[in-house]
């Protein structure tokens, strides 16, 4: 009987663990997804213009500012999101593509990449 209870508990716990990621991405997962967006040539390709202090970032370009002191530069994370969504709002001749406004990335991908760069 006790054995049954234990295994039932284990099953319940397992179910809990399995279902959690389906409801919402953890910050850690968002960061990993954001990194893939940042580096991916057919995704964000942010690395082509922005240096970032990540050991996996090889041969980053420098058309745009480096990803440093993000939390200080954007105390409101939503303002950073807005900048990624459409940088031409603040600078009409910017080289940066409007990643959200032109639906280059999905809204979920933008959330993820903001999580990733906000660590730097």
């Amino acid at each position: 009987m006790r054995k049954l209870t234990t295994s039932m508990c284990a099953a319940g716990l397992l179910a809990l663990i399995v279902t959690t990621p389906a409801t919402a991405m953890t910050t850690q997962e968002a960061v990993a997804e954001g990194k893939a967006v940042y580096m991916g040539k057919s995704r964000g390709n942010c690395i082509s213009c922005h240096q970032i202090n990540d050991p996996d970032a090889n041969l980053a370009g420098n058309q745009g500012p480096p990803m440093v002191a993000m939390a200080q530069r954007f105390p409101d994370k939503r303002m950073l999101r807005a900048q990624v969504w459409d940088a031409s709002k603040n600078n009409p001749i910017t080289i940066m593509p409007p990643l959200g406004k032109h639906w280059i990335l999905s809204e979920e991908e933008i959330d993820a990449v903001v999580e990733y760069i906000y660590q730097f």
Partner: peptide, 10 residues
């Protein structure tokens, strides 16, 4: 619209 979408998504 753009500013709110940009800051908050859909």
């Amino acid at each position: 619209f753009d500013m709110n979408r940009a800051m908050h998504g859909k």
